[in-house]
Design a protein around this nucleic acid. Sequence first.
DNA 1: TCACAATTAAAACGGTCGTTTGAATTATAC
DNA 2: GTATAATTCAAACGACCGTTTTAATTGTGA
Lengths: 220, 220
Amino acid sequence: MSLNSAQKSRKSPCKTSDTQGRLLNAAEALFIDAGYAGMSARAIADKAGVNIAAMGYHFGSKQGLLEAVLIRRIAPINTSRRLRLQAVRERRAESIRDILHAFLWPVFFNEHEAPARRLMGRVMTEPAEVVEPLLSLVFSDVIEQFVLAVAACFPKQDRALIAQKFSFVVGALSFTVLRPSERLLGSAPPTEVSFERLLNFSIDGFLEGPSVSVNSKDIP
Amino acid sequence: MSLNSAQKSRKSPCKTSDTQGRLLNAAEALFIDAGYAGMSARAIADKAGVNIAAMGYHFGSKQGLLEAVLIRRIAPINTSRRLRLQAVRERRAESIRDILHAFLWPVFFNEHEAPARRLMGRVMTEPAEVVEPLLSLVFSDVIEQFVLAVAACFPKQDRALIAQKFSFVVGALSFTVLRPSERLLGSAPPTEVSFERLLNFSIDGFLEGPSVSVNSKDIP
DNA sequence: TCACAATTAAAACGGTCGTTTGAATTATAC
DNA sequence: GTATAATTCAAACGACCGTTTTAATTGTGA
């Protein structure tokens, strides 16, 4: 029996069916479109062209399959983020643009493009509790690193304020990549354009903008 | 038979059980926590302390109940947004702060506070196709009005750019109100603080910030 | 070729899904 | 009080859920 996929690919090197890969792709697409509760094991198996029992055999459960889906795409993105942040830091002249660029770029540009982007958006807004431990496992560290880096850029700004500003960036990012983005906008701009716009928007939010000098009155 | 709730309340003015209200409250809470696919009709009925058939009787279906839930909370928020935008316009000196204030304020401050906030965040990220027509029905008009108002503030800026910046605001807003917000931040700041921070962050994103003068290189 | 492990397949498991039915109960109007 | 409508209730509908079992099939090393 298998139940583990890591060491097994070494024992059977020439897989022609690639059941695991087909399951991962099918589950990814359905999770993006319907979320965890909305994707059924039978729909996954059908889309993958695989017997339904294959899911339990290769990944243990539906939750195990989703975890594999997330780790396959999200972990490389966060690794890329970390590497880029490290490269920026080694230049000893990090700017807020460099830091946010390192955070946003791997989401928009990677070898899997749209699927990875939308998967990122979906998982950040997924209500199912099964993804909660996965989220903190994969994200908490990289988020903390980036918030620290941004804080180093603005020693004067309140730390909690910086953390929340960063969560605004995460929100704008998640919402942007969640859909083909014809929802609010009439049409979807090219990926490079969306990326550049979100980057500039986020940068301006961190810089000490004119907004701080203006008082707003709550008109109840 | 009923199947319609609008004209019926006039015929039976003294409801002691308030089955519809209990169903709405229960469905709202469960939808916020689990999304459409994750909330079951039986869980709703149990939480409401009501027979399961009451849902079909009063709202036709689970989808009908969710529609009533959304309209009850979201429509008043958007109405408040429109009224505030109109008030700002009549002053003939609208600023980006005033416009964004009118857009954000009704989400953070209304008579139902946290439930309405989180419901707003959940519905904006809900994958189920059943909410799609509801979304465009309730949101497309108010969004268009606000984008137009912002565009009037910045006649020089590209219209598509403004629309996408506004979607960034919507994303940051949705993500902020989606959870009690202990997810990325360590703790949740008071509502007024979060509101003020998001407002300032959004304003800075629209103002012609320093980011436009700096070119970013894509380091692949 | 033969044992043996890995994988796939068909079928069923108990359970829950959203919805419907029809009778019982309650409120309203005359 | 009685007819009539509105509402609630228990029960069941067929369908689908995630998972498991058991047997058949495939691939691999001796």
